[in-house]
């Protein structure tokens, strides 16, 4: 781990085992299970925001739970930089669903004060209350809201409360698991603005997980693209959009509907996401890739690095920097 590295994931995998029946257990056959995260290596440097994008079911939320320590990886290692005293950094997480992430029986004051009390960041009732009020103002709510219960707030306001709670823990590392996906577009913009201001002012190191490319483009310094549990490409944010190396990244960028009125066409990625319990052989993307050749079906692609500090997993050195690529032809679909 080099000096600037804050968090490193070293070949991390997570396998969800299927519940085995009594007879299967007797037979001692290995049921295998679903490889939700497969051999992911990733580094987050101090003060940097790394974005993770991918379709639903690609394992990005599982990765978030692994990093947060809610689950242990099946194999591989997740290590944080420890401070001088050898203590692990304080973590906080912001969840997708602002409704289930707040305890409905607690007042807003109690909710936001919890991390302060657990980490003993302020002493005394008055100091804690003052800090809660300060945080409420910081996220655009009013100190009077502290007396209320979560049920009295809208989704956007609840997400602000979640952000205030996360900040109350004075986290050194923040995990954001689709923090805006459950919100209206107008509210999304407010929350993103708030998060960006906080990023700038508090110099947070964070992992930002989303399926929305335009969101991750605004928020992240570097972006990782996940497909079926694998990290297929990773690059600095602008580099990824300017010069994607992996066909999946290109297709993902093209699939996002944009506000450009000159181009009303949509480019969905052909085919279905394969069952992660039985991933395709060779390159996992070959069933949907417009450039797939025989080698892709049989051989796992190597991990290549780019001169711009990125990496990607593809057999070919494709130039995907401009123009949409045509959706896969019929013969690929039937393959």
């Amino acid at each position: 781990m080099s000096a600037g590295d804050f968090l490193t994931l070293d070949h991390v995998s997570k396998v969800y085992r299927r519940n085995q029946g009594f007879l299967e257990r007797l037979k001692k056959t290995d049921a295998g299970g679903t490889r939700a995260v497969s051999d992911v290596s990733l580094t987050v440097r101090h003060g940097e925001t790394v974005g993770l994008v991918g379709e639903s079911g690609c394992g990005k939320s599982t990765l978030a739970r692994l990093v947060s320590g809610l689950m242990a990886p099946t194999s591989g290692e997740i290590s944080f930089r420890k401070d001088a005293a050898g203590k692990a950094p304080r973590l906080q997480m912001i969840f997708q669903d602002p409704y289930s992430s707040l305890n409905g029986r607690w007042t807003i004051e109690d909710i936001i004060a919890e991390p302060i009390k657990v980490h003993r960041l302020r002493q005394g009732k008055a100091a804690i209350r003052a800090r809660v009020d300060e945080l409420l103002v910081q996220v655009g709510l009013s100190p009077a809201d502290a007396e209320k219960y979560p049920q009295e707030f809208s989704g956007g306001q609840r997400q602000r409360i979640c952000i205030a709670r996360a900040l109350a823990g004075e986290p050194e590392f923040l995990i954001l698991d689709e923090p805006t996906s459950a919100l209206d577009v107008s509210v999304q913009a407010q929350i993103l603005n708030l998060l960006r201001d906080l990023q700038k002012n508090l110099h947070l190191t964070s992992l930002f997980i989303t399926h929305n490319l335009s969101v991750v483009r605004i928020m992240a310094d570097r972006i990782g693209v996940m497909y079926l549990g694998e990290l297929v490409e990773e690059a600095p944010s602008e580099e990824l959009f300017r010069r994607p190396r992996h066909p999946y990244t290109r297709l993902l960028i093209d699939a996002a509907p944009d506000m450009d009125t000159s181009d009303r066409s949509l480019h969905p990625i052909a085919g279905e996401l394969p069952n992660p319990a039985f991933p395709p052989s060779g390159c996992r993307f070959h069933t949907r890739c417009p450039f797939a050749k025989d080698i892709c079906r049989n051989t796992v692609p190597p991990q290549k690095t780019t001169e711009a500090d990125g990496l990607y997993r593809c057999h070919f050195d494709l130039d995907l920097s401009n123009a949409s690529i045509v959706p896969p032809s019929a013969n690929v679909k039937t393959a």
Binding site: L70, Q92, S100, L102, N103, E114
Partner: peptide, 13 residues
């Protein structure tokens, strides 16, 4: 399995 329990756990409860 609710997220508020996860949040408390990450906080260190």
């Amino acid at each position: 399995d609710q997220d508020y329990v996860s949040a408390a756990r990450i906080t260190g409860r």
